[in-house]
Protein backbone atom coordinates (compact mmCIF):
# COMPACT_ATOMS: atom_id res chain seq x y z
CA UNK A 1 0.00 0.00 0.00
CA UNK A 2 2.67 2.44 1.11
CA UNK A 3 4.69 1.38 -1.91
CA UNK A 4 1.92 2.38 -4.26
CA UNK A 5 1.57 5.80 -2.67
CA UNK A 6 5.27 6.41 -3.12
CA UNK A 7 5.05 6.16 -6.87
CA UNK A 8 1.85 8.03 -7.32
CA UNK A 9 1.69 11.77 -7.83
CA UNK A 10 -0.74 12.99 -5.23
CA UNK A 11 -2.78 16.01 -6.30
CA UNK A 12 -4.38 18.62 -4.09
CA UNK A 13 -6.76 21.28 -5.31
CA UNK A 14 -5.86 24.10 -2.93
CA UNK A 15 -8.59 26.54 -3.87
CA UNK A 16 -10.45 27.62 -0.76
CA UNK A 17 -8.25 25.51 1.52
CA UNK A 18 -6.69 27.34 4.49
CA UNK A 19 -2.94 27.10 4.97
CA UNK A 20 -3.39 25.17 8.16
CA UNK A 21 -5.47 22.52 6.49
CA UNK A 22 -3.28 22.44 3.41
CA UNK A 23 -0.14 21.92 5.47
CA UNK A 24 -1.85 19.28 7.58
CA UNK A 25 -2.63 17.38 4.39
CA UNK A 26 0.94 17.75 3.18
CA UNK A 27 2.16 16.39 6.52
CA UNK A 28 -0.17 13.39 6.22
CA UNK A 29 0.84 12.63 2.68
CA UNK A 30 4.56 12.83 3.28
CA UNK A 31 4.35 10.71 6.40
CA UNK A 32 2.58 8.10 4.25
CA UNK A 33 5.64 8.04 2.06
CA UNK A 34 4.31 10.07 -0.86
CA UNK A 35 7.22 11.43 -2.83
CA UNK A 36 5.47 13.66 -5.38
CA UNK A 37 2.72 16.15 -4.66
CA UNK A 38 1.07 18.55 -7.05
CA UNK A 39 -0.69 21.58 -5.63
CA UNK A 40 -3.15 23.22 -7.99
CA UNK A 41 -4.88 26.58 -7.56
CA UNK A 42 -2.64 27.83 -4.79
CA UNK A 43 -3.82 31.29 -3.78
CA UNK A 44 -1.53 32.79 -1.15
CA UNK A 45 -1.39 29.92 1.35
CA UNK A 46 1.59 30.46 3.62
CA UNK A 47 4.30 28.17 4.93
CA UNK A 48 4.10 25.55 2.22
CA UNK A 49 6.79 22.93 2.78
CA UNK A 50 7.39 23.76 6.45
CA UNK A 51 7.63 20.81 8.84
CA UNK A 52 7.85 18.05 6.25
CA UNK A 53 11.45 17.01 6.87
CA UNK A 54 11.54 14.64 3.89
CA UNK A 55 12.93 14.90 0.36
CA UNK A 56 9.47 15.08 -1.19
CA UNK A 57 8.83 16.83 -4.52
CA UNK A 58 6.15 19.51 -4.42
CA UNK A 59 4.97 21.24 -7.59
CA UNK A 60 3.09 24.45 -6.88
CA UNK A 61 0.79 25.94 -9.50
CA UNK A 62 -0.52 29.39 -8.69
CA UNK A 63 0.82 31.85 -6.15
CA UNK A 64 2.09 30.51 -2.84
CA UNK A 65 1.98 32.92 0.10
CA UNK A 66 4.69 34.28 2.36
CA UNK A 67 7.27 32.11 4.11
CA UNK A 68 7.26 29.43 1.43
CA UNK A 69 9.57 26.72 2.74
CA UNK A 70 10.25 28.51 6.03
CA UNK A 71 12.41 26.34 8.33
CA UNK A 72 12.20 23.76 5.55
CA UNK A 73 14.28 20.63 5.95
CA UNK A 74 14.51 18.56 2.81
CA UNK A 75 11.67 19.00 0.30
CA UNK A 76 12.09 20.27 -3.22
CA UNK A 77 9.48 22.86 -4.14
CA UNK A 78 8.97 24.03 -7.71
CA UNK A 79 6.78 27.09 -8.11
CA UNK A 80 5.11 27.65 -11.44
CA UNK A 81 4.38 31.28 -10.70
CA UNK A 82 5.76 33.92 -8.36
CA UNK A 83 6.90 33.48 -4.76
CA UNK A 84 6.14 36.14 -2.15
CA UNK A 85 8.11 37.47 0.85
CA UNK A 86 10.20 35.28 3.12
CA UNK A 87 10.69 32.49 0.61
CA UNK A 88 13.19 30.04 2.13
CA UNK A 89 13.16 31.84 5.51
CA UNK A 90 15.69 30.11 7.83
CA UNK A 91 15.69 27.10 5.50
CA UNK A 92 17.87 24.22 6.60
CA UNK A 93 17.90 21.81 3.68
CA UNK A 94 16.04 21.33 0.39
CA UNK A 95 15.50 23.23 -2.82
CA UNK A 96 13.13 25.94 -4.04
CA UNK A 97 12.84 26.66 -7.75
CA UNK A 98 10.74 29.65 -8.73
CA UNK A 99 9.64 30.04 -12.34
CA UNK A 100 8.94 33.73 -11.86
CA UNK A 101 9.75 36.48 -9.35
CA UNK A 102 10.23 36.35 -5.58
CA UNK A 103 9.50 39.03 -2.98
CA UNK A 104 11.55 40.47 -0.12
CA UNK A 105 14.02 38.71 2.21
CA UNK A 106 14.53 35.71 -0.03
CA UNK A 107 16.49 33.09 1.91
CA UNK A 108 16.59 35.11 5.16
CA UNK A 109 19.11 33.44 7.50
CA UNK A 110 19.20 30.30 5.38
CA UNK A 111 21.51 27.62 6.74
CA UNK A 112 21.56 25.23 3.82
CA UNK A 113 19.69 24.19 0.68
CA UNK A 114 19.33 25.96 -2.64
CA UNK A 115 17.03 28.59 -4.05
CA UNK A 116 16.76 29.39 -7.74
CA UNK A 117 14.64 32.32 -8.90
CA UNK A 118 14.25 32.80 -12.63
CA UNK A 119 13.39 36.52 -12.59
CA UNK A 120 13.73 39.43 -10.16
CA UNK A 121 13.65 39.52 -6.37
CA UNK A 122 12.72 42.16 -3.78
CA UNK A 123 14.68 43.77 -0.99
CA UNK A 124 17.34 42.10 1.20
CA UNK A 125 17.79 38.85 -0.73
CA UNK A 126 20.10 36.43 1.04
CA UNK A 127 20.19 38.51 4.21
CA UNK A 128 22.17 36.96 7.05
CA UNK A 129 22.72 33.58 5.39
CA UNK A 130 25.08 31.37 7.33
CA UNK A 131 27.39 28.43 6.76
CA UNK A 132 29.49 25.95 8.63
CA UNK A 133 31.78 23.39 7.04
CA UNK A 134 29.95 21.74 4.16
CA UNK A 135 26.62 23.21 5.07
CA UNK A 136 26.26 26.18 2.81
CA UNK A 137 23.12 27.77 1.33
CA UNK A 138 23.14 28.82 -2.33
CA UNK A 139 20.81 31.43 -3.84
CA UNK A 140 20.80 32.08 -7.59
CA UNK A 141 18.76 34.96 -8.96
CA UNK A 142 18.29 35.17 -12.72
CA UNK A 143 17.14 38.78 -12.88
CA UNK A 144 18.05 41.65 -10.66
CA UNK A 145 17.44 42.54 -7.02
CA UNK A 146 16.25 45.50 -4.98
CA UNK A 147 18.44 47.13 -2.31
CA UNK A 148 20.47 45.36 0.37
CA UNK A 149 21.07 41.98 -1.26
CA UNK A 150 23.49 39.94 0.85
CA UNK A 151 23.07 42.19 3.88
CA UNK A 152 24.81 40.89 7.03
CA UNK A 153 25.83 37.75 5.15
CA UNK A 154 27.74 35.41 7.45
CA UNK A 155 28.09 32.62 4.92
CA UNK A 156 26.67 31.00 1.80
CA UNK A 157 26.74 31.87 -1.87
CA UNK A 158 24.59 34.53 -3.52
CA UNK A 159 24.62 34.72 -7.32
CA UNK A 160 22.98 37.60 -9.12
CA UNK A 161 22.84 37.12 -12.88
CA UNK A 162 20.98 40.17 -14.24
CA UNK A 163 19.85 38.24 -17.31
CA UNK A 164 17.00 40.65 -17.98
CA UNK A 165 19.27 43.71 -18.05
CA UNK A 166 20.57 45.11 -21.34
CA UNK A 167 24.29 45.37 -22.02
CA UNK A 168 24.48 48.98 -20.72
CA UNK A 169 21.94 48.68 -17.94
CA UNK A 170 23.21 48.69 -14.33
CA UNK A 171 21.87 46.43 -11.60
CA UNK A 172 19.20 48.14 -9.53
CA UNK A 173 20.36 47.32 -6.01
CA UNK A 174 22.22 49.67 -3.70
CA UNK A 175 23.90 48.72 -0.40
CA UNK A 176 24.94 45.38 -1.84
CA UNK A 177 26.54 43.27 0.89
CA UNK A 178 26.19 45.87 3.64
CA UNK A 179 27.49 44.39 6.90
CA UNK A 180 28.72 41.28 5.13
CA UNK A 181 31.17 39.27 7.25
CA UNK A 182 31.17 35.86 5.60
CA UNK A 183 30.19 34.07 2.39
CA UNK A 184 30.50 35.31 -1.18
CA UNK A 185 28.43 37.16 -3.79
CA UNK A 186 28.93 36.66 -7.53
CA UNK A 187 27.50 39.34 -9.73
CA UNK A 188 27.09 39.32 -13.49
CA UNK A 189 26.52 42.63 -15.25
CA UNK A 190 27.50 46.17 -14.36
CA UNK A 191 27.38 48.08 -11.12
CA UNK A 192 28.93 51.32 -9.91
CA UNK A 193 31.03 51.50 -6.75
CA UNK A 194 28.40 53.49 -4.90
CA UNK A 195 26.03 50.53 -5.13
CA UNK A 196 28.26 48.46 -2.89
CA UNK A 197 28.11 48.32 0.88
CA UNK A 198 31.12 49.68 2.75
CA UNK A 199 32.04 46.26 4.03
CA UNK A 200 32.55 44.47 0.72
CA UNK A 201 35.59 44.20 -1.45
CA UNK A 202 35.60 43.47 -5.20
CA UNK A 203 37.80 40.81 -6.76
CA UNK A 204 38.40 39.08 -10.05
CA UNK A 205 37.28 35.50 -10.20
CA UNK A 206 39.72 32.69 -9.70
CA UNK A 207 39.59 29.17 -11.02
CA UNK A 208 37.67 27.85 -8.01
CA UNK A 209 35.11 30.63 -8.39
CA UNK A 210 34.48 29.58 -11.98
CA UNK A 211 33.98 26.01 -10.80
CA UNK A 212 31.37 27.19 -8.31
CA UNK A 213 29.62 29.24 -10.97
CA UNK A 214 29.73 26.43 -13.47
CA UNK A 215 28.00 24.16 -11.01
CA UNK A 216 25.27 26.47 -9.79
CA UNK A 217 24.68 28.47 -12.95
CA UNK A 218 24.57 25.10 -14.65
CA UNK A 219 21.81 23.96 -12.32
CA UNK A 220 20.01 27.27 -12.77
CA UNK A 221 20.15 26.98 -16.56
CA UNK A 222 18.92 23.40 -16.45
CA UNK A 223 15.90 24.39 -14.32
CA UNK A 224 14.80 27.23 -16.57
CA UNK A 225 15.93 26.10 -20.02
CA UNK A 226 18.85 28.49 -20.47
CA UNK A 227 22.26 27.70 -21.89
CA UNK A 228 24.81 27.95 -19.10
CA UNK A 229 27.65 28.64 -21.51
CA UNK A 230 26.02 31.78 -22.80
CA UNK A 231 25.48 33.08 -19.27
CA UNK A 232 28.99 32.26 -18.13
CA UNK A 233 30.62 33.94 -21.13
CA UNK A 234 29.84 37.28 -19.57
CA UNK A 235 32.01 39.12 -17.10
CA UNK A 236 31.42 38.33 -13.41
CA UNK A 237 32.77 40.02 -10.32
CA UNK A 238 33.17 38.55 -6.90
CA UNK A 239 32.21 40.42 -3.75
CA UNK A 240 33.75 39.35 -0.48
CA UNK A 241 33.70 40.64 3.10
CA UNK A 242 36.67 42.91 3.68
CA UNK A 243 36.72 42.28 7.38
CA UNK A 244 35.75 39.43 9.62
CA UNK A 245 34.64 42.03 12.16
CA UNK A 246 33.14 44.95 10.27
CA UNK A 247 32.05 46.62 13.50
CA UNK A 248 34.98 45.58 15.70
CA UNK A 249 36.30 49.09 16.27
CA UNK A 250 33.05 50.67 17.29
CA UNK A 251 33.33 50.14 20.99
CA UNK A 252 35.15 51.45 24.04
CA UNK A 253 35.57 49.15 26.99
Amino acid sequence: MAQKETNRVMKIDASGVSYRELNARLRDMTSNGTSKIELRNVYGQRYIGTDLGKPVNIEVFGTPGNDLGAFMDGPRITVHGNAQDGCGNTMNEGEIIVHGHAGDILGLSARGGRIFVRDDVGYRAGIHMKEYGNKKPVVVIGGTAQDFPGEYMAGGILILLGLNLTEEERHKAKFIGTGMHGGVIYLRGIIEDYQLGKEVGVAELEEKDYQILQKFVGEFAAHFGYKAKGILKHNFIKLFPRWLRPYGRLFAY
Binding site: N89, R124, I127, E131, Y132, A154, H181, L244, R245, G248
Partner: peptide, 28 residues
Protein backbone atom coordinates in the same frame (compact mmCIF):
# COMPACT_ATOMS: atom_id res chain seq x y z
CA UNK B 1 34.44 38.16 17.96
CA UNK B 2 36.63 37.28 20.96
CA UNK B 3 33.83 35.08 22.21
CA UNK B 4 33.10 33.32 18.90
CA UNK B 5 35.16 30.20 19.52
CA UNK B 6 35.15 27.05 17.38
CA UNK B 7 32.20 25.54 19.22
CA UNK B 8 30.24 28.79 19.27
CA UNK B 9 30.92 29.18 15.57
CA UNK B 10 29.54 25.67 14.96
CA UNK B 11 26.39 26.23 17.00
CA UNK B 12 25.75 29.64 15.44
CA UNK B 13 26.97 28.73 11.93
CA UNK B 14 29.12 31.80 11.48
CA UNK B 15 32.87 32.16 10.92
CA UNK B 16 35.07 31.80 13.98
CA UNK B 17 36.31 35.11 15.38
CA UNK B 18 33.69 37.19 13.60
CA UNK B 19 31.30 39.36 15.57
CA UNK B 20 27.96 37.58 15.80
CA UNK B 21 25.56 40.23 14.57
CA UNK B 22 21.91 40.16 15.50
CA UNK B 23 20.20 42.81 13.42
CA UNK B 24 18.18 45.39 15.35
CA UNK B 25 14.86 44.28 13.84
CA UNK B 26 13.85 40.84 12.70
CA UNK B 27 13.74 41.54 9.00
CA UNK B 28 10.61 39.47 8.55
Amino acid sequence: GEKVSTEVSLTRMIPQGTDALSPAPQHD
